[in-house]
C-alpha cells in the first residue's frame, strides 16, 4: 500500500494529540503500519500543536514540505501556516472558525483574511473541505469534541482507507466513557459534513 501522509495542525487545547492517537489506533486495527510524530512543546500555553501521521510502508515518521496527502487543520490560520506541506494532489480539511492568538486579541498582530486565503489554497490543491467544526461540536454536545468532528471529516473525505465503523470502535475504546456518545455524534456530524462538501 502506498504511504498516506496526514499532517494535523491545531492550537493547544483542541485535542489534536488525541485525534492523532485515535487515527493511529484505527489504522493499527486495520492492520496497517503506523508512524506518528508529535510536536507539542508548550501546547498548554497557547502554542501550535502539530501531529504527523504516516500510514503504510516506509520508515520515517516525518512529512516534508509538499509531501502531505492530507492536511487536517483544526483552526484556519493554522491551516494557512501549514499550507507549504500541500501539493496539487493534497486533500485539505479545515475548520473555518478562527481562534485568534492573544497577539491578535490584544491588537499586536493581525488575523488574516481567512476565507480569501482558504479560497486561494483551494484552487491549488485537489480537494478542500471547509467546515465549521466548533458549531458541529456544540451540536454534538460539547465544544471539546472539535477533534472528533475533524476526525469524522477525515473519515468522510475518503482520504484514508479505514471504514468509519472501525474509527467508532476505537473512539468508544480510547476516549473517556462519559464523552463517548458526544464523541461518536461529533464524528458522525463531521463525516456527514465532509461528504456533503466534497
Amino acid at each position: 500500500m502506498k504511504t498516506i501522509r496526514i499532517m494535523i495542525v491545531a492550537v493547544g487545547g483542541q485535542g489534536n494529540i488525541l485525534a492523532a492517537r485515535v487515527l493511529g489506533e484505527t489504522a493499527v486495527a486495520a492492520g496497517m503500519d503506523v508512524r506518528m510524530s508529535e510536536f507539542h512543546g508548550m501546547a498548554q500555553r497557547g502554542g501550535v500543536v502539530e501531529s504527523m501521521v504516516l500510514l503504510g510502508r516506509g520508515k520515517g515518521a516525518c512529512i516534508a514540505d509538499g509531501a502531505a496527502d492530507v492536511l487536517l487543520g483544526f483552526e484556519p490560520s493554522e491551516t494557512i501556516r501549514a499550507a507549504g506541506k500541500c501539493n496539487a494532489g493534497t486533500t485539505v480539511i479545515t475548520s473555518t472558525a478562527a481562534v485568534p492568538p492573544f497577539t491578535v486579541a490584544l491588537g499586536d498582530a493581525r488575523y488574516p483574511d481567512v476565507p480569501g486565503a482558504l479560497q486561494l489554497l483551494a484552487d491549488r490543491v485537489n480537494v478542500m473541505i471547509a467546515i465549521d467544526a466548533p458549531d458541529l461540536a456544540i451540536r454534538a454536545g460539547s465544544l471539546l469534541a472539535i477533534n472528533m468532528v475533524m476526525l469524522g471529516a477525515l473519515a468522510g473525505s475518503g482520504a484514508t482507507p479505514m471504514p468509519p465503523d472501525l474509527f467508532c470502535g476505537i473512539i468508544k475504546e480510547k476516549t473517556k466513557k462519559q464523552f463517548a456518545d458526544i464523541n461518536l455524534k461529533a464524528f458522525e456530524l463531521g463525516m456527514n459534513a465532509a461528504r456533503n462538501t466534497a
Binding site: 492550537v11 512543546g41 508548550m42 500555553r45 497557547g46 502554542g47 501550535v48 490560520s77 493554522e78 494557512i80 501556516r81 499550507a83 485568534p100 492568538p101 492573544f102 497577539t103 491578535v104 498582530a109 493581525r110 488575523y111 488574516p112 483574511d113 480569501g116 486565503a117 486561494l120 489554497l121
Partner: peptide
C-alpha cells in the same frame, strides 16, 4: 497567502 499570526507560547 497571508501570513498566519504568530502564536508564541505565553
Amino acid at each position: 497567502l497571508p501570513e498566519a499570526p504568530p502564536r508564541p507560547p505565553n
